[in-house]
Design a protein around this nucleic acid. Structure first.
Length: 118
DNA sequence: ACATGTTCCTTAC
DNA sequence: GTAAGGAACATGT
């Protein structure tokens, strides 16, 4: 499996890699950041993620604030470990869901948002 | 349930 | 070796 990383994979890994600790991001946000409107593509790449701990894929959750998947499993002990790991980083989960949506990191947070109100 | 974007596999020439 | 089609996916609405 000497598969070379494609441009899409590089963008995805780069985007996820810049997620600060104690924060989480959503598949939709990552997909949008990489220039693609499909979180499925991100999920597909992450599932086959050849670099498991290299990229903090555990910091990526679904837009529904659900845990999503981890290491090729949509649910199970792996998800439990993911939640535990996030909890260790300062992200609190409740009932398989993000307790504080404010911890979701946004890539466009730095850009001037006209629709943003004080 | 369907749509969406990318990756992977099989088959054909 | 290259081409084309179909299947799958940790989602989203």
């Amino acid at each position: 499996m000497t598969r070379q990383p494609t441009a899409f994979e590089g963008r995805v890994y780069s985007a996820i890699s810049r997620i600060p600790a104690g924060c989480v991001s959503t598949y939709a946000e990552v997909a949008r950041e990489v220039g693609c409107g499909s979180a499925q593509a991100v999920g597909q790449v992450l599932k086959r993620n050849p670099f498991a701990p290299k990229v903090p894929c555990h910091r990526v959750i679904a837009s529904d604030l659900s845990s999503g998947g981890f290491m090729g499993e949509a649910e199970g002990a792996r998800i439990r470990a993911k939640l535990a790991l996030l909890k260790t980083e300062g992200v609190a989960f409740k009932n398989d869901r993000l307790a504080d949506p404010a911890q979701v990191f946004r890539f466009k947070e730095t850009a001037g948002r006209l629709t943003r109100r004080p």
